[in-house]
């Protein structure tokens, strides 16, 4: 068994209790919240008997521990249950919306990585100059300004005034790749503003650490070009921190796309969760939380594996 495969297995085993805890917490929190899905489903003119009938039909009148046990039993069989209000399975609801959120997160990361790393490296290289100050000011604005506010302004300017992008909606990639890109570009850029700010600051910090080390001075004394020093020697050494930051950003983009999905009316997982919570759709929120938990574990695993490629000193044997 290769070290990488062993690492994957260990990480997956470690994920089991994490996912277990996440799902129990999701189940507990939702069940402790006041409000009753049976009331929502039965409607506001329903009699107590009708509400009770709905509650019984959904199994909500069973003891908490029984509901939890049934849910786990279904999960073991790969069944995430049925949404109480969507009239579809949790798995299909997730599968329908996951491409939207992944597209948004992926596209924003594709924008973030070159710009964030580039700006951070630039700021580190020109440390103390006006370039450094400008980049850090932009980064500070990026991480500070609320995305819903920027989104509103961006829609007003780029959609209403300039007409460059649609103000809302989503087109699947398979249906029309060009329209898919057009629909997602503006929300992705806005989502990436925070990410660029975060990543450029992280990159700058990591690069500054590297620039101060002896091997950089040695490289310069050997007459190696500045571009090669930055791109090959300095950046390679700063890459571990950049990978860590990227993993965090991807998780944040998937989990934090709620606001952007809301403003741009993108039918993604974020909106699904919000509406699920408001409707007390227990199976839906539990299922989404579980899948979120698995996704974050997977991202961490990829980050761990990436370390060994970025830094040959990192070994898992």
């Amino acid at each position: 068994m290769t070290p990488a495969i062993r690492l994957i297995l260990i990480k997956l085993l470690q994920a089991v209790p994490v996912v277990l805890i996440v799902s129990i917490l999701a189940f507990l929190v939702l069940n402790l919240l006041p409000g009753d899905p049976a009331v929502i489903i039965a409607g506001d003119q329903a009699t107590p008997a009708a509400i009770e009938a709905v509650r019984h039909s959904l199994g909500l009148d069973r003891p908490f521990i029984v509901q939890l046990g049934i849910w786990f039993l279904h999960i073991v069989h790969g069944n995430f249950g049925n949404s109480l209000v969507l009239n579809q399975t949790v798995a299909s609801a997730m599968l329908q919306r996951l491409p939207v959120t992944l597209s948004l997160a992926g596209l924003s990361l594709a924008i973030t990585l070159p710009i964030g790393i580039g700006l951070g490296s630039l700021a580190a290289y020109y440390r103390g100059s006006w370039i450094d100050s400008s980049v850090m000011t932009v980064a500070l604005v990026g991480v500070s300004v609320p995305s819903f506010w920027v989104a509103g302004l961006a829609v007003a300017l780029f959609s209403v005034v300039l007409g460059w992008f649609p103000s809302s909606g989503y087109v699947p990639f398979a249906q029309n790749p060009a329209q898919w890109l057009r629909a997602l570009l503006l929300p992705s850029i806005i989502l990436s503003l925070f990410e660029i700010g975060f990543l450029s600051r992280m990159t700058r910090s990591a690069m500054l650490d590297v620039f101060g080390q002896d091997f950089i001075r040695t490289a310069r004394s050997k007459g190696i070009s500045e571009w090669r020093i930055v791109s090959k020697h300095a950046f390679r050494n700063a890459l571990v921190m950049v990978i860590t930051a990227t993993g965090i950003l991807l998780s944040a983009a998937i989990g934090g796309s709620v606001v952007i999905e809301q403003v741009f009316a993108l039918p993604g997982v974020g909106r699904l969760v919000v509406e699920g919570i408001l409707a007390r759709d227990y199976p839906l929120v539990q299922g989404v939380m579980l899948i979120y938990g698995l996704t974050f574990v997977l991202i961490n695993l990829i980050v761990d594996l990436a370390y060994s490629f970025a830094d040959p000193r990192v070994r898992y044997d």
Binding site: V160, S167, S168, G169, A265, P267
Partner: peptide, 11 residues
């Protein structure tokens, strides 16, 4: 089209 934000509906 389901658009929860009023400002986006207006846009």
């Amino acid at each position: 089209n389901f658009i929860p934000e009023a400002s986006t509906r207006i846009a």
